[in-house]
Design a protein around this nucleic acid. Structure first.
Lengths: 251, 251
DNA sequence: CGTCATATTGACTTTAGTCAATAGAAGTGG
DNA sequence: CCACTTCTATTGACTAAAGTCAATATGACG
């Protein structure tokens, strides 16, 4: 994941994403582009927002990968979502406080913090954009549901494959997949916390995936020789990611 | 769960719930109350909406309990959320189609179907209400995250206890808990599909919960002699349900 | 060169799943 | 009202998936 946040103007990332939901007028695009934000940088492993925090801004990922996680009373950590460039990590904090989870950087990341007041005044100017934000929140929720099905009904092997498929499609859409490869920043301990497994079992499942020639993974570089095969192994269906324009789906 | 949808005027349920987020003006309340809807009745086990359906209305539970579930390719079913009176089962279908899950009735239910066009025109009239709907969607998402932590990090015993705690608080708020008891409509097979377990293991875990005197359950009547004890056993924290007024939480 | 995080391996334990049988309960049609 | 089917709940015996503990690599880094 390349560090410089220059090559993709931050707000354009968001415009491009929201256009998946439907066409935006020129003034709506401008409204989004003119959202004020301050850019922050975090190193891998750093906590971006803490559980229980009450914040008055939402964070947008400009580059790198972040993840949401919950800490249980006895110290266990469950990762509940990942974010790639263009994703809000906590759009819901606009309406729901305090935050019921924390956010951390899985790789070196640049984050744009957008004040809630700015989001509110954007909606005051362009009420129609509320539907776009709702759509973004709904996407997020759809992903949670898919993860629930993964945790509840898939084997360790399938779950890890599923996570790799999801990241593949989302990163590909954001332009971060090259030659069927992408940088998969998670450690085995993080994969374990995302899939509800132990690190030992993740390690063994990864070896099975390698043995079956579904993945090649070293130094966080993940190569997927046959994405179709991985999809089948994971029981993956990319529909829930809604990567096509909604218009296109309906027509 | 009492059948008659009379005693609680349908829209008032929604007004009361949305007021948890913040105060509503008289005109906003009226706007919500005047939402058109057609009431439908479903028997227990009936499918209310099918996976993959494209619908132009969202369904609000008037009485009874419903649940969302996903069907995996090989036929497995994962229940991903439950709804009690006052909850939308698919508010997100307002912006996200097709539906990535199905909805079924866990008990005999009355449902109000509200056209998306009516929701849209309500938002056109009262743009401020968009934040209320976002809040409702955010609540739903918070619940999904909590379930993810349950599936990933809790034992079977804790998970079932957690589900019972969640239903306890939500039903209590809606006025359906009497004498520390409520009607828990799920069969053991449904509990299994909600917790990612086998029916046999659910059965044994229920017996453990009974043996530990945390619950009494027969004929779908669940009595919780000591909710504090159940909460501790479940590692339950009701914060994510946001049952207090948001104002109150902040102050 | 030593330290710390991450990855790997082996041996063993635990949790939960599977299969199969039985027992209740509830609903249905005659 | 009863025989019959069909869910639902329960139990036992066995299996399999995943966790735990512990040791050992491996590798990045200061």
């Amino acid at each position: 994941m390349n560090p410089p946040p220059r090559h993709i103007p931050s707000a354009d990332l968001l415009v491009r994403k929201l256009q998946r939901f439907g066409p935006l007028s020129e003034s709506e695009r401008n409204q989004i582009r003119s959202l004020p934000s301050r850019v922050q940088e975090f190193g891998r492993g750093q906590v971006i927002i803490d559980q229980g925090e009450v914040t008055d801004e939402s964070s947008l990922v400009l580059s790198g990968i972040t993840f949401r996680y919950k800490l249980l009373p006895e110290g266990a950590r469950q990762i509940v979502a990942t974010q790639v460039p263009g994703d809000f990590v906590d759009l819901h904090s606009f309406v729901l406080k305090p935050l019921d989870h924390a956010i951390a950087a899985a790789s070196h990341v640049y984050i744009a913090k957008v004040p809630h007041a700015a989001i509110q005044s954007m909606l005051d100017q362009q009420p129609r954009l509320a539907r776009y934000l709702m759509w973004d929140m709904a996407l997020d929720a759809a992903s949670s549901r898919e993860w629930l099905a993964a945790l509840g009904k898939r084997t360790a092997y399938q779950q890890i494959a599923h996570l790799f498929c999801e990241l593949y499609f989302r990163l590909d859409w954001a332009g971060y997949v090259k030659n069927a490869s992408y940088e998969m920043p998670f450690t085995q301990a993080e994969l374990a916390d995302a899939c509800g497994l132990s690190t030992v079992h993740v390690n063994r499942s990864l070896q099975s995936l390698r043995r079956d020639r579904l993945i090649m993974l070293e130094n966080h570089a993940l190569f997927i020789p046959d994405i179709g095969a991985l999809i089948r192994a994971a029981l993956f269906d990319p529909t829930y990611l809604h990567l096509q324009r909604e218009d296109a789906v309906v027509s």
